[in-house]
């Protein structure tokens, strides 16, 4: 059984149709890259899968782990193992990162009928997670994302992912605002969290991140539909030829560049 099966998905934001029939199937153990030009709908797809109420699903279906994903509120999706790494992580002043992470971890545990962990147990648990994204324990005492640099915010997203151990992680433009060192740390973290029973969807505009998180499949989103799918070499081809190559409809021969 596929981990997630998206069929003919349509979605609008402020009455404007953004997704116009997406079909995508992801199996456990796979990494899929979703690429596309600005406005193609790739971030919308990520938000819709995570359940952002700002987007309205107007058609199609999403089956996740045998469940009707679209019927679940965002918190239940998360409790069932969906994780969205935000392109723009939200700052929450006054709420410490430690409190936030433990609250999220306990909510997911609670949903699975497991006991909540106390702050001491959680501190032990956090040690290896912090090492994974090369973060200092002092980051836990700071307010969630407040005053974090772009790189720190993205590392904090991967830290959350490490804590929640999702079955399907969706990375939305994670490379934006990262220098090469931060990019490497973030990608490293994602790779280390890869297991045979989970999957990752990497939403990205640039091929750069895919040098570090190597996809099994690449899909090119154009105008709300998947225009082309292929293996990891498709990303390199796109980098080389630009999105016009796909959007113009007629593939350009290799020699024409």
């Amino acid at each position: 059984m596929s981990l997630i099966e998206i069929k003919d998905l349509h979605a609008t934001v402020s009455d404007k149709e953004i997704l116009k029939g997406i079909d995508l199937t992801v199996d456990a153990g796979e990494i899929h890259a979703v690429m596309g030009p600005n406005g193609s709908g790739k971030s919308t797809l990520a938000q819709v899968l995570a359940g952002n109420p700002a987007y309205e699903v107007t058609g199609g279906s999403v089956t996740y782990d045998g469940k009707d994903l679209l019927a679940l509120p965002p918190e239940e999706r998360a409790q069932h193992g969906i994780f969205l790494a935000f392109q723009y992580p939200v700052e929450i002043p006054g709420v410490s990162n430690a409190y936030f992470l433990r609250a999220a971890y306990n909510e997911v545990r609670k949903a699975h009928g497991e006991e909540e962990v106390d702050p001491l147990e959680f501190a032990d648990f956090m040690e290896e997670k912090l090492a994974l994204v090369d973060m200092d324990a002092s980051m836990l005492n700071r307010s969630v994302n407040q005053g974090f640099s772009g790189g720190e915010k993205k590392r904090n997203e991967i830290l959350q992912m490490a804590v929640l151990q999702p079955r399907l992680a969706i990375l939305d433009e994670t490379e934006s605002g990262l220098d090469i060192d931060a990019l490497r740390i973030v990608a490293d973290g994602v790779n280390k969290l890869k297991r045979p029973d989970n999957a990752t969807i990497v939403v990205t505009h640039y091929q750069r991140l895919l040098n570090y998180i190597v996809p099994d499949f690449v899909h090119v989103l154009v105008n709300g539909r998947i225009a082309k799918s292929g293996g990891k070499e498709l990303a390199l081809e796109l980098e080389d030829k630009g999105y016009d190559w796909v959007t113009s409809g007629a593939p350009v021969g290799a020699g024409a560049a």
């Binding site: 952002n52 700002a54 918190e75 936030f100 999220a104």
Partner: peptide, 10 residues
């Protein structure tokens, strides 16, 4: 939405 997307109840 950010908090809910981490499994935190409404």
């Amino acid at each position: 939405f950010y908090l809910k997307s981490r499994g935190i109840e409404s």
